[in-house]
């Protein structure tokens, strides 16, 4: 018998729930793309998937390798370029964006630029891409990360994409007009941000993962008092992922 679900499938299913029907979704390569497709095939058939390279509301038949993939053009509502898509983002037309990164701190500030001293870094990552723009300008942001101590420091080495900055009022002080991270989905569980303190707290842990393990892999104090077990994926969702959306085994 095949596994009931894999860790990546659990993450994708959980990420897809963040998308509400009818929302305009700004999506990047990888797991978010699969989550977006799953949302469209299940609870959010009217969500509009937007890729920064220029396509809006594609009818994806096959999983694209990147946001600029020719596959993104098939059946799209419109096919334009960066300028139009980033104008939509700046104008507040994008409801939700998905981001990843090398580091995230307790306020959801993200680093996808460099580890160590910026001028001569220990590790040089690819850079912002559209992440900074999305973090500043979409109505909300969902972060997908690997849950490791080095990736969850008290403070990020470089702040590529603003989260809640230094806490309540931080974004307003910086001059940002909207947005902020709402959820962090990792390979251990799901974190959210306290509405008043803006600090990350544990919302749910995956079946088989202990709260202790999450604490050990988090570089700051994290409130776990509100956490319960994450809901397992439904068999229909797994069947869709395995047979229709990602049949080539990219979620194994």
């Amino acid at each position: 018998m095949p596994e009931e679900y894999t860790l990546k499938e659990l993450m994708v299913v959980r990420a897809s729930k963040e998308i509400k029907d009818g929302e305009k979704v700004f999506i990047g390569t990888g797991l978010p793309m699969i989550a977006g497709m799953l949302a469209k095939y299940t609870h959010a058939p009217n969500c509009v998937i937007i890729f920064e390279a220029g396509t809006v509301d594609s009818k994806l038949l096959d999983l694209p390798a990147s946001v600029g993939d020719p596959r993104c053009v098939y059946g799209a509502s419109t096919c334009t370029g960066l300028f139009d898509i980033f104008s939509m983002l700046q104008d507040g037309k994008i409801d939700i964006g998905f981001l990843g990164g090398g580091q995230v701190d307790k306020y959801g500030n993200l680093n996808s630029t460099a580890i160590g001293e910026y001028r001569c870094p220990e590790v040089r990552f690819p850079g912002s891409g559209g992440a900074c723009d999305m973090a500043c300008l979409s109505k909300r942001v969902v972060i997908i990360m690997k849950h490791e101590l080095r990736r969850f420091p008290a403070e990020v080495d470089y702040l590529t994409s603003p989260g809640w900055m230094d806490g309540p009022g931080g974004r307003e002080k910086a001059g940002l007009v909207r947005g902020g991270p709402t959820t962090v989905i990792t390979d251990l569980g799901v974190m959210k941000f306290d509405p008043s303190s803006k600090e990350m707290y544990l919302d749910s842990y995956y079946p088989g993962v202990s709260i202790e393990k999450i604490r050990e892999n988090t570089g700051f104090d994290i409130d776990c008092s509100r956490a319960g077990e994450t809901e397992k994926p439904h068999i229909e969702e797994i069947a869709l992922l395995r047979n229709k959306i990602a049949p080539k085994g990219s979620l194994r």
């Binding site: 960066l82 980033f86 700046q90 630029t113 900074c132 500043c136 470089y158 702040l159 994409s161 940002l176």
Partner: peptide, 24 residues
């Protein structure tokens, strides 16, 4: 995109709403 657009329009700069709060 904004810097290229400014040059394409013959302007020395264009404003955006992004970047505030970022180390970029």
């Amino acid at each position: 995109v904004t810097g290229l657009r400014a040059s394409a329009m013959g302007l020395p700069f264009l404003p955006t709403r992004g970047f505030l709060g970022s180390d970029v």
